[in-house]
Design a protein around this nucleic acid. Structure first.
Lengths: 210, 210
DNA sequence: TAGATTGTTAATCGATTAACAATC
DNA sequence: TAGATTGTTAATCGATTAACAATC
């Protein structure tokens, strides 16, 4: 079977949707429930499960517990992982305290900054100097890091982290970090995202037909 | 009218590619050149231009200057726009002060929060109560808003903003805001982005595929 | 059983690519 | 002209959706 990025994204959506339902006390779901919660069609949910050989019960739907286990088996377990954030400016500090980054699957454990003594506010994890990065990472098997340093040093920081064995990056700097072999980069370009919205809106308002 | 997000994204890629070529002193390009620079196929470039009624010269290619004007005409100029952020928690406050949101093309002009008096820190724009939202937006033609409220009220806030005429959204809440006709939503699901990275890393290490 | 939902196949939709006539 | 490139149509590809038989 070919590797389908969109399918992976949907699978994680299902997982999150199921966790939410589970937290509400729901034990059993139908494809329709998952579809609604994840924002796709019921057909697609069943089709995806079919491709992945995930079986439910005809008429009985799916047991959330089993379904979550099946999905977790496929995407691989991600629990007890740790992440760090490099660059503790406005965004970096907000990310440190971001609730979603202190979850079952992964935990934000440290921030790094060029001048940690100036990083203000009460934070949910310690902030160290950039010079402590190597020492900190050694033996810790940190797979994922967030880059929220100024644009002009992002590439340099990226290279350093790759050398130290980090495999996945969430990049907030407005530069395109090139994915190299075995390394994955998700670029979060907030400025571009906003600009794109303006373009979509303008494009639509002009009524340019396609 | 159909609206194709991917097409707009490609259009912006062409624009960037053309600007790069222009800066190199290139005056005339063929669909092949654009394709190479933008990372798509020549067929697609010509097909896109055909759909957008952008004409070149048979055998003569495209004049970069004219082409850039045509594309800019289509996506529309974006300058002097204003945006707001609704929800001034960690993320919201960081976004208010985010330098990229005080640019030539658009400016962050206000934040809104359910309890504005508790929003701390020195911010680069004022923060108002949610009850001031309607009054503030009336007559201001704010096209884009950032949603960074708690997950459980995101949908409600979204509906309200849509009713008040906002057309584009950058959504940081971990809920799927459905795009309705004429409204665009860019979901920034940070948690999912990180989980995705772990999956890709697991995938690579295990060599499994789906 | 009667009713409801899965699982899969077929139909549909849309986007990309290929091909090539038009034409400069 | 001869050659090269556009512009458009047709073919292909893949993903999504619809339909419904299987079945609990």
């Amino acid at each position: 079977m070919t590797f389908n990025k969109e399918l992976v994204v949907r699978l994680l959506r299902y997982k999150n949707a199921l966790l939410k339902l589970k937290n509400l006390g729901v034990l059993k779901v139908f494809s329709d429930n998952i579809a609604d919660t994840a924002g796709v069609t019921a057909s697609q949910v069943r089709k995806d499960f079919s491709l992945l050989k995930i079986a439910g019960n005809k008429r009985g739907g799916y047991q959330i517990k089993e379904l979550l286990e099946d999905i977790t088996d496929i995407v691989g377990p991600t629990s007890g992982e740790s992440i760090i954030v490099v660059g503790c400016g406005n965004i970096g500090r907000a990310l440190i305290n971001y609730k979603g980054f202190h979850s079952e699957t992964f935990e934000m454990i440290a921030g790094f900054d060029i001048s940690p003594e100036t990083v203000s506010g009460s934070l949910t994890c310690p902030v160290y100097g950039m010079d402590k990065l190597e020492e900190f990472l050694l033996g810790k098997n940190i797979k994922v890091a967030i880059i929220s340093v100024p644009d002009n040093v992002a590439a340099e920081v990226y290279d350093k982290l790759v050398k130290l064995g980090v495999k996945g990056f969430l990049n907030f700097a407005r530069v395109n970090l090139r994915e190299i072999d075995g390394v994955f980069v998700n670029n979060v370009n907030l400025e571009l995202s906003i600009e794109n919205l303006f373009y979509y809106i303008n494009f639509m308002e002009k009524g340019t037909s396609i």
